[in-house]
Structure formats: structure tokens, C-alpha cells
């Protein structure tokens, strides 16, 4: 008997499962297809403006920095401001994302952007968020041909452009949005839920930012619809 059968057989016996799965099998199938929502904290259940404020509060609480702009036109200046404030070079690597294509990057002539995955020693990246969760100030980033995951982790500075409409109160709304885009029971290779920049408290229980991932996470919230 192979290990799979041995383990499952053992479990079936201990859990008194009939050979055909019985009523349990139906309960499991229903639960998986219903993907019912459990208790959702009230905290994020706000109107659009409230959600944006709450997201900003919690993201900042997790040591991200946040800039709010009214439209995509203002994104390049916000990015340039961030780079300047931290004395960073003006060359960036960006996701080849269609939403980021709508940003008029040429309005900031000092910025140079390359659309590709991240490599050493890229210092700063720009990506677009699939969504965000106000409840905890968390970004939802997905992998795909237009959004390499390395951009989220290799550079020391990560800039995320987030369209305000995509901020939901809770995680559950993001899972629904993912099902809408990728289908039932399917996900892209990687979904990153990111709450603030990388950190470690492994040396004497003192929190330090920038352990392996980005030392800085800068979120530019765009008010208008993409």
C-alpha cells in the first residue's frame, strides 16, 4: 500500500468514514462550493471615503507611507517626490501592467522606467495593486505576465499604485473579486497580501525594517477610476 492510501485509509477508519464518503462527502462538497463568509469585523464596513481613510490609517500603522492623488496624471510627481525625499535614483523598474500604462510617466522627465521583472541591484519598483483591504491596511498583489512577483520583494523600495475603488472593507470582497477574474477554485500562481514593509524582530525582539523584502513601502492612492 502506498503512503497516500495508508494515511487516508487510517484517517477514514479513525473518523468512521464510509467507503463512499457518505453524508460527509456531500457536506464537504457543499462547503467548498459555497465558500460561505464567516464573521466579518465591523471595522471595515464603511462607505468609500471611510474605507480609504481606514486603509491609510492601518497601512501607516504598519509603517507604509501613503500619498493620495486625485488622478493618474498626478502619480509620476508623487513617485518622484518619494524618490527625492529618500535620495533615491530616478530609475525604476515597473510592472508591465496596463493600468500603469495609463499613467503619464513622461510628465516627469527625470524618471526612467523599465518594464520587466526585478533583478539585483534594482533599488526601486513600481507595481499596481489588484486591490486592498481597509480592515488592516493590506495590499492585494497578484502575479501574472503583467505583474512579476520579484518586483514586490527584491528592491529595497516598493511603490504601489492603488486605485481607490479597489479598496474593500474586508478580505472576503477581495476573494470574490479574485474568483470573478480567475474563476471558481482558481488563483494566479501568487497572491501577496502585503501589510507594510518587510521587518524582523529576531535580534533582541527589536523591530527593524527591511529584513529581506523592501525597507520602504510607499502607496500612492489614486482617487479617480482607472
Amino acid at each position: 500500500m502506498n503512503s497516500r492510501e495508508a494515511i487516508l485509509g487510517d484517517l477514514r477508519q479513525k473518523l468512521n468514514r464510509p467507503a463512499d464518503g457518505g453524508a460527509g462527502a456531500q457536506a464537504v462538497a457543499e462547503r467548498l462550493s459555497a465558500h460561505r463568509r464567516n464573521l466579518i469585523p465591523q471595522r471595515g464596513q464603511l462607505d468609500r471615503a471611510g474605507r480609504i481613510d481606514l486603509f491609510e490609517d492601518y497601512a501607516a500603522g504598519a509603517d507604509a507611507t501613503v500619498a493620495r492623488v486625485s488622478s493618474a496624471e498626478a502619480v509620476p510627481a508623487a513617485v518622484a517626490d518619494f524618490l527625492k525625499a529618500h535620495n533615491l535614483p530616478a530609475n525604476l523598474v515597473r510592472a508591465p501592467d496596463a493600468d500603469l500604462d495609463t499613467v503619464p510617466w513622461e510628465s516627469q522627465p527625470t524618471l526612467t522606467l523599465e518594464a520587466r521583472k526585478a533583478e539585483e541591484p534594482d533599488a526601486a519598483s513600481v507595481t499596481a495593486a489588484f486591490g486592498a483591504v481597509a480592515e488592516t491596511g493590506t495590499l492585494v498583489l497578484v502575479s501574472g505576465d503583467d505583474s512579476p512577483t520579484t518586483l514586490n520583494f527584491l528592491p529595497e523600495n516598493h511603490i504601489v499604485v492603488l486605485w481607490a475603488d479597489r479598496i474593500s472593507g474586508d478580505y472576503e470582497a477581495q476573494w470574490s473579486a479574485l474568483r470573478d477574474r480567475y474563476g471558481e477554485g482558481a488563483l494566479p500562481r501568487t497572491v501577496n497580501l502585503v501589510t507594510g514593509p518587510s521587518r524582523s524582530a529576531d535580534i533582541e525582539q527589536t523591530i527593524q525594517l527591511g529584513a529581506h523584502g523592501p525597507r520602504r513601502l510607499h502607496i500612492v492612492i489614486v482617487d479617480e477610476r482607472p
Partner: peptide
């Protein structure tokens, strides 16, 4: 665990990289 609202990185991984994915 740490009293954080959420850990910094919660990563959902599903299978290997997809056709067209530049990394993974």
C-alpha cells in the same frame, strides 16, 4: 502571535508559474 493586525506578508501560492509569468 506578535500583536500585529496582520503579518507583513501573507502569500497564497498555487501551483508553479503560469505560461507567460516572468518569474516564479
Amino acid at each position: 502571535a506578535t500583536g500585529q493586525e496582520m503579518s507583513v506578508y501573507t502569500t497564497v501560492s498555487t501551483g508553479p508559474r503560469r505560461a507567460g509569468d516572468p518569474d516564479g
